[in-house]
Design a protein around this nucleic acid. Structure first.
Length: 286
DNA sequence: AACGACACCAACCGCACGAGC
DNA sequence: CGCTCGTGCGGTTGGTGTCGT
């Protein structure tokens, strides 16, 4: 009995020794794709054996889910996707797979990598603990507005894609004004400069919450244009937070829109160090 | 051109959990 | 009840490409 058990163990060890590790070859990919196309996913250990792959079931599963699956989206994360990641991370923390479910075609691994390489890098840069409230607030105050700006630029420059409707809500509260912060937030509210040089309040980019289309009372009638960027003559002394509703991202699978359509940006206390743009390496965001 | 530092990301690892026996 | 197996998850590692000196 013991002998047979030892034999089983040694056979298993031998099998494990023979298993291949490291990067997948094109041939292996091909085998896995064809096998799954014919037999479907699941039972990864037996799948690996039946397909003749000298890989663990785990390895096959990972390769399929993170790389080979047909609906996997490749390439850089869009500003929209980055916004969703940031917002959902505030909500759920490092639940990458949960976050990934809201980003069709993106894998938990990809999102995790994005967070670790890009977001945490900013934290290191700012010398703040990435899990700290301070960093979260910094992201909400300086990073997300820039992403929003990017989203807006993308949507306004694109004539064919579904436009992103950004809905910005303000709350009243006294906070100490900060000049640089002021400029940042002004730019969040930047509409695309109308081609005919006329700005109208009917701009669909900025409207009241709940998709009501009502204009924000805090927004001035006319922005000041400097180049292609419009700056509102808006005092931030009374603004406590933004709620940004992203109601029409051109992305699939937003069935649970209620969960994520409202991006809440509380404006925190002053950030003496972080308000300087040089602390934020925006080039690496997209 | 050579080298080191750094960034990115695919792949691996260990753990947890549920199902089935 | 305890064991094994399959699966999923988050954290970590290592290979590779890029950039600066």
């Amino acid at each position: 009995m013991r002998a047979s058990k030892n034999m089983t163990n040694s056979c298993k060890e031998e099998e494990i020794d023979q298993l291949k590790r490291g990067p997948w070859t094109l041939e292996e990919d091909d085998i896995l794709i064809h096998y799954i196309n014919r037999h479907g996913e699941g039972r990864w250990n037996s799948l690996a054996k039946s397909a003749g792959l000298k890989r663990t079931g785990k390895s096959c599963r990972l390769r399929w889910l993170n790389y080979l699956k047909p609906d996997i989206k490749r390439g850089n994360l869009t500003p929209q996707e980055q916004l969703v990641i940031l917002e959902l991370h505030f909500k759920w923390g490092n639940s990458w797979s949960k976050i990934a479910r809201h980003l069709p075609g993106r894998t938990d691994n990809e999102i995790k990598n994005y967070w670790r390489t890009r977001v945490q890098k900013q934290a290191r840069h700012l010398k703040i603990d990435s899990s700290s409230k301070r960093f979260v607030e910094a992201l909400q105050q300086f990073w997300m507005p820039r992403l929003l700006e990017k989203v807006e630029q993308t949507s306004s420059s694109s004539t064919t894609s579904t436009s992103s409707t950004l809905t910005i809500e303000t709350h009243q509260k006294n906070i100490s004004p900060h000049p640089q912060e002021e400029q940042t937030l002004h730019k969040v509210l930047t509409p695309t400069k109308p081609s005919n040089n006329e700005y109208t309040n009917s701009s669909s980019n900025i409207c009241a919450p709940e998709s009501s289309g009502k204009m924000l009372p805090q927004l001035p009638e006319m922005p000041q244009f400097y180049g292609d960027t419009a700056y509102y003559n808006l005092s931030l002394e009374n603004i406590d937070s933004y709620n940004v509703h992203i109601s029409e991202f051109n992305m699939m699978g937003f069935g649970q829109q209620d969960d994520i359509s409202c991006l809440n940006f509380p404006v925190a206390d002053t950030y003496d160090d972080m308000t300087n743009d040089t602390y934020w390496n925006m080039d690496q965001l997209w």
